[in-house]
């Protein structure tokens, strides 16, 4: 068996006296889609924040493709090819859809002072090239979106904002995509639509590895190859959706049955 793309070992995160992640082991292989589930406060988002450097890791380590990313700054981790979305959308609402997508491209854009100030022709060409890339990516999610490329993100509906946020994470073709509850704040129909988009994107990029946090079990069943259940910062169960859903420990802790 090949080495996993993401390999987290015994991760510990503490907030004061609370242990949010309590020695979590989790590995994800290239091309896999892993659903991360668990009750509120079980450490799902904290796991994402620990991987992307937004909280201090008190113990354990995380490796991406063999490189140790534990305790690095978020901007350094981004350079390793991890991109994420946020539970509460973090689009730059005052900026255009294009500007938001270009934030996703930040690490590939030319920020040199000389070219920024004087090579205006080259900048215009770069804008045209990036706009084409952006339109193609947006079209994979919704046929109406490319036409709204230069509209402010604020003018979009909730589902389109989610789409743009996912596109922002995808545009640099990351190795690992972390989706933090993409269905939050959307109707079941919208959620179903978004998951169809996601599966289509995944079908085009077999090497894309996804970890998705979801409360909606239907979503997990539909998109994930494997499920990991967290509770109190620990791994409670792991396996296919059917295995996990049938596990009596999971049913007791999460689905509220005894």
């Amino acid at each position: 068996m090949t080495a996993p793309l993401l390999d987290a070992r015994a991760l510990v995160v503490r907030f004061g006296g609370v242990t949010a992640l309590d020695g979590l082991d989790l590995s994800v292989h290239t091309g896999e889609t892993v659903g991360l589930i668990g009750p509120n406060g079980s450490g799902k988002t904290t796991f994402f924040n620990a991987l992307t450097g937004f909280v201090r890791v008190a113990g354990g380590r995380a490796q991406l493709a063999g490189a140790d990313i534990t305790g690095l700054e978020p901007r350094r981790i981004a350079a390793f090819g991890i991109a994420r979305t946020f539970q509460r959308l973090r689009l730059l609402l005052d900026l255009s859809v294009f500007d938001n997508l270009m934030l996703g491209q930040h690490l590939t854009l030319d920020h040199g002072p000389w070219s920024s100030l004087f090579a205006r022709g080259r900048f215009a060409a770069a804008v045209r090239g990036q706009a084409d890339v952006a339109r193609t990516l947006l079209a994979a999610f919704s046929p109406g979106l490319p036409a709204r490329l230069f509209e402010p993100a604020r003018a979009l509906t909730m589902i389109d904002r989610r789409r743009v946020e996912i596109c922002r994470a995808l545009i640099r073709e990351p190795a690992l995509l972390l989706l933090d509850e993409p269905s939050a704040g959307m109707t079941p129909d919208e959620t179903a639509e978004l998951m169809t988009d996601l599966l289509a994107v995944k079908a085009q990029r077999p090497a894309l590895t996804v970890v998705i946090i979801e409360h909606d079990m239907g979503v997990i069943e539909r998109v994930s190859d494997r499920c990991v259940v967290l509770d109190y910062g620990r791994k409670l169960a792991e396996g296919s959706y059917a295995e996990v859903a049938a596990d009596p420990v999971v049913r007791r802790a999460y689905l509220g049955e005894d």
């Binding site: 937004f54 978020p74 981004a78 946020f86 973090r90 930040h106 854009l109 920020h111 002072p113 920024s116």
Partner: peptide, 21 residues
């Protein structure tokens, strides 16, 4: 320029900006 976009991102949302490098 892309510099101006980086400035805007820093002003509007430091967390999102850092997440994209």
């Amino acid at each position: 320029s892309w510099i101006g976009l980086a400035f805007d991102a820093v002003r509007l949302d430091e967390t999102a900006a850092a997440a994209f490098g």
